[in-house]
Design a protein around this nucleic acid. Structure first.
Lengths: 114, 114
DNA sequence: CTGGATCCCTATCGATACTG
DNA sequence: CAGTATCGATAGGGATCCAG
C-alpha cells in the first residue's frame, strides 16, 4: 500500500456516496425490514418527503439495489424490494452498525460535555 | 423485525452520511494509505480542492476519525492520521470494497448495453 | 506549506399543489 | 395509493486571492 490508486479511490468514493445520499441508507434499511409499499417506506423513515423518496427510489433502482414491482390491482399497488446486490450490501453494512455501537454508543446522552 | 426503529435508522443514516459526504471516503482512504501531509492528501485525491479538503478534514476531526498533529518546524508541518475509530472504520469498510468488486466489476466497460 | 475568506453558481432540499 | 410539477430557500462546491 503505497500510492493511491485513483480508480479504486473513485470507485470506493462513488459507492459510499450512493448510499451516503441524504435518505438512501434509511430507505434501504426500511426496505430490508420489509417495508415494501411506498407509503410504508415514507412512514418508516421519519422526515422523508414524498418527493425525495421517489427520487431516491429511482436512484436506488438505477443502481440496481432496489427493484420496483407494479401489481395491477385497483388501485395499482407498487412494491419495492432489494435486489441480490442490495441484500448483499446490507449484509456488508452490518459491521458498520456494530462499529456505531462500538464508537458511537450514546448519540444524545452526553457523557463529556464539551 | 417489524417496524423501523427510528433511533437506529437515524444513527445508521448519520454515520453513512458522514463518510458519504463528497470527498470524505477518498480522504480517509488516502490517510489510511499513509498520506499524512495536507498536500499529500490533496495530491492523492484527484479533483479535490484545498478548500474542500480543509473543510472535510475539520468534519472528520469533529467526528473523531482523524487527528491533526502540528509539528513546530519551519514552516509549520501538519500531519493527519486516523484515530482508533478511524482505523476501525476503514477495517469495517473493507467488505464494502469486496462488495464493489463483486457487483461493480467494470465501471466503464459496459457488458450489457441498456 | 497550510489553510482562511470571499464570490458566485449550481445542485439539492422541503413544502405545497396536483394527477392517474 | 403512488407519485409528478413547480417554486423558493439553502447548502455545497469551485475558483481565486490572501495570510501565518
Amino acid at each position: 500500500m503505497q500510492s493511491i490508486d485513483d480508480a479504486e479511490c473513485r470507485r470506493f468514493t462513488s459507492t459510499v456516496e450512493v448510499i451516503g445520499r441524504r435518505w438512501s441508507a434509511g430507505i434501504l434499511l426500511a426496505i430490508a425490514r420489509d417495508a415494501a409499499r411506498f407509503s410504508e417506506i415514507a412512514g418508516a423513515v421519519d422526515g422523508l418527503s414524498d418527493r425525495l423518496l421517489a427520487q431516491r427510489l429511482r436512484e436506488l433502482e438505477a443502481d440496481d439495489l432496489v427493484v420496483r414491482e407494479v401489481i395491477a390491482t385497483t388501485p395499482v399497488q407498487v412494491r419495492y424490494h432489494l435486489t441480490a446486490s442490495g441484500v448483499d450490501l446490507m449484509r456488508v453494512l452490518e459491521p458498520l452498525v456494530e462499529w456505531e455501537q462500538r464508537w458511537r454508543p450514546s448519540p444524545a446522552a452526553g457523557e463529556s460535555a464539551e
